[in-house]
Design a protein around this nucleic acid. Structure first.
Lengths: 134, 134
DNA sequence: CTAAACAGGACATAATTGGTCTTTTAGTGA
DNA sequence: TCACTAAAAGACCAATTATGTCCTGTTTAG
């Protein structure tokens, strides 16, 4: 339970590698993929998702590639994980009050809220700077 | 991410219902299933898993059914969830030291350990007594 | 014996995961 | 402008997992 998928694992490996490179050095997707041992086509999808929300910046054409969208200490593990795995939701009824039709009976509800908060809290406190060992 | 499956949700609903019944009252699976709105055949599988590890006790034959295996305050939400969903493991490399081949490079590792510990901690503090409103 | 009730395995179907492949778009340099 | 390079985007596909159903036991009370 609560397991990160491969996509999430690859995402972290990829962006941490990028964070560890010299600032503003444009990295080829192919280089990142082989460095962190992830299928390039799959990593491409992941970096597209990063790019859309600004976690990385992409450059096309010759000399193109990827750089980090912000300084490593401004990107949290929570952002990275949620970018590819979606929001951290331990149980559907955590989504909103109205959704859980048995919410008044449901004493489990606050427990999941608590889990969600705590996990988000832990992940939000870790930045790419920490992970890249900078 | 980190989402409980239906199986886990059903498991909780089912056993919480059982915990709310008068002590030592033998409950029919069919009654539990209809009360908590879960397909009976599916719930049967779940209760089999509970039975194997003693969370519930089953009686076969006429007049058979299920009772809680222990007093509700002695059964934690963690046990219930792990019984059907397996252990709480946010990332594969949390399983063991040797498994994560990049463990020396892997600064993410301690974060997952921390997540795992915290989640288990929260779930272990909630019992069926709390959930059943006893 | 018979009907009630759980046990356990085989099977079915749909969704999700984990990819690949192809085409398009954008930028570089000759 | 032309050729080349590299990411973007979307179609496609295989394997796995989730979510059940069904059928055949086996146990037990009466």
């Amino acid at each position: 339970m609560m397991e990160l998928t491969r996509k999430g694992e690859y995402a972290i490996r990829g962006i941490v590698f990028l964070a560890a490179q010299p600032t503003d050095q444009i990295c080829l997707l192919s280089d990142i993929a082989s460095a962190v041992d992830v299928p390039q086509t799959f990593l491409a999808k992941i970096f597209q998702q990063f790019s859309k929300i600004g976690l990385v910046r992409s450059y096309r054409g010759t000399g193109g590639g990827f750089v980090l969208g912000r300084p490593p200490e401004k990107i949290t593990l929570l952002e990275v994980v949620e970018a590819v795995e979606g929001p951290i939701i331990p149980n559907r009824c955590v989504i909103g009050e109205g959704i859980c039709s048995r919410s008044n009976l449901c004493n489990v509800h606050p427990v999941w809220i608590s889990v969600q908060d705590k996990v988000r809290d832990i992940l939000a406190k870790v930045t790419l700077k920490d992970l890249a060992g900078l």
